[in-house]
Write a protein that binds this DNA or RNA. Structure first.
Lengths: 217, 217
DNA sequence: TGCTATGCGGAGCGATCTCTCCGCTTCGGA
DNA sequence: TCCGAAGCGGAGAGATCGCTCCGCATAGCA
């Protein structure tokens, strides 16, 4: 699973790039993904260009700003997430949601550098909404099959992803798989047999509120 | 619950500060805690000094570097955490661990700005070890009273704190209490009645490994 | 009250970051 | 093969950051 936009093709129907330009664009994305994962988003653009083997001018000709480069990486991740969720819709025993949760953990862990932007980037809001829509279907199916408790909310799934972000970022360089243990515990707590939860779920309006807040920036 | 080092007194038995200097020091700490929580650790030192109502020179006379200011805030938080855990040792029904987990969540949420340093700052390693030692006692007590499953590990508690960090950081400005819902789900998954966890706990050696890695930086 | 150690403010230094600009190079269609 | 459009590299502009330095102010003891 990788980006669905092939080398040389740019989203939005722009004129195709020249061969060398398209290659350099991809090398920049690869280099950025690597150094961001290893050293965080604070790595300088000069360093990204150096690793990609191009000049900084080339980077800025292809991406209007450093942020745009990060957004493109996030966009590709969101495309992967939507694909992952779409595949899970085929699962018939109600375990699709768990499958997507583990898969989302893998994607977050493999691209640690961009995690902080994944859930806070309004450039990819359409994809995020689509992803969330599929998750809500999977959640219903999981409940119908008795795999997830009835009082679980979609926002509980959101919270779990954000929690995994914390585990992954804190265990950087220490353990690559610790997040799985946490996810397993959370899912155990979401089973129908688990104890009642007194704490109410996150208000769904807060999710909307988050979007407004992001746009206001 | 607040710092146990009163205004004018500095840890380590240094000569007491002049009254005005001690006041300014405290104002700097308060200002830093505020702006870090609101806008993150990237806020400039000039801004911290401005909010505190002092010059940047004053900040640097009291703290050798911006990092030292952050470390002091973290140190005070760790002192609070140890006090919190120590109090919980008095609880006799085995619910002390849960009490500390919620309390730690509160402290993390109230000082969002410093969270990322809380679990990655080797200046406070002694306090962190003490905190962790108490947690292990509380975990044993919780198991003895049948409140927590026998196969739960101390590292599961660590993971939970790191997970709460992710929730708190991602919901900044959206929901102040969402982390409680997640914590409730995790604890539900840690009850003796919850389903078996296949994923093994985090290797305790990884915790040691993390310390080595931090020192190597 | 007078004296001195201590504290204070903020201009400015050096480092670093993002992003631009322009002379030169390369691709690829005719 | 030739030529114009497109792409390239990297020096450097402009902004911002952490931190220092020094002339002046003040607290607190005698």
């Amino acid at each position: 699973m990788r980006s669905y936009v092939s080398v040389g093709e740019v989203a939005g129907g722009d004129k195709p790039l020249r061969r060398d330009a398209a290659e350099n664009r991809q090398r920049l994305l690869d280099a950025a993904a690597t150094v961001f994962s290893e050293r965080g988003l604070d790595v300088s653009v000069d360093e990204i260009a150096r690793v990609a083997g191009v000049g900084t001018g080339t980077l800025y000709r292809r991406f209007p700003a450093k942020d745009a480069l990060i957004s493109e990486l996030v966009r590709q991740l969101m495309i992967d997430l939507v694909a992952l969720a779409t595949e899970a819709l085929e699962v018939t025993d109600g375990s699709g949601l768990e499958q997507v949760m583990y898969g989302t953990g893998e994607i977050q862990a493999s691209q640690r550098g961009c995690i902080s932007r994944m859930w806070n980037d309004d450039e990819t809001e359409v994809l995020k909404n689509e992803y969330r829509r599929i998750l809500s279907e999977l959640l219903i199916s999981a409940k119908d099959h008795g795999r997830i408790r009835d009082d679980a909310a979609l926002s509980d799934v959101d919270l779990t992803f954000w929690a995994l972000r914390g585990v992954i970022e804190t265990t950087r360089g220490v353990s690559d798989t610790a997040w799985r243990r946490h996810l397993a515990l959370v899912i155990a707590g979401m089973r129908p047999g688990a104890e009642q939860i007194v704490e109410p779920p996150m208000d769904e309006r807060h999710v909307e509120l988050a979007k407004v807040r992001l746009h206001a920036r």
